[in-house]
Amino acid sequence: MTKPEGELTWRDLEIGSIVTEAGNASQYQTGDWRSERPIFDNNKCIKCGLCYIFCPEGCIGQNAEGYFDADLFYCKGCGICARECWPKAISMVPEEE
């Protein structure tokens, strides 16, 4: 795990401030930006994967049965998946406290 930025001293930095842990941004939560989240209806899903390919976050994955779901740790709730799902298997619902 990368040390949080507020705890890094100058001595902790790699030469030239290189980041050596590839893709460590995946530790960073963007899901809390969301005001709506996608709900996937597997009865309507035809497993085409358009939601997966069109997700700007790359946070939609396919499970063992071939259905899709969004990783809410990252999902910012843009609604592209719901808009592009032509069998209308995805709907956006408001995030509530």
Binding site: L8, W10, S17
Partner: peptide, 10 residues
């Protein structure tokens, strides 16, 4: 800002 000064000190 939380890390820039550390890079310059280094």
């Amino acid at each position: 800002p939380i890390i820039y000064a550390e890079t310059k000190k280094a």
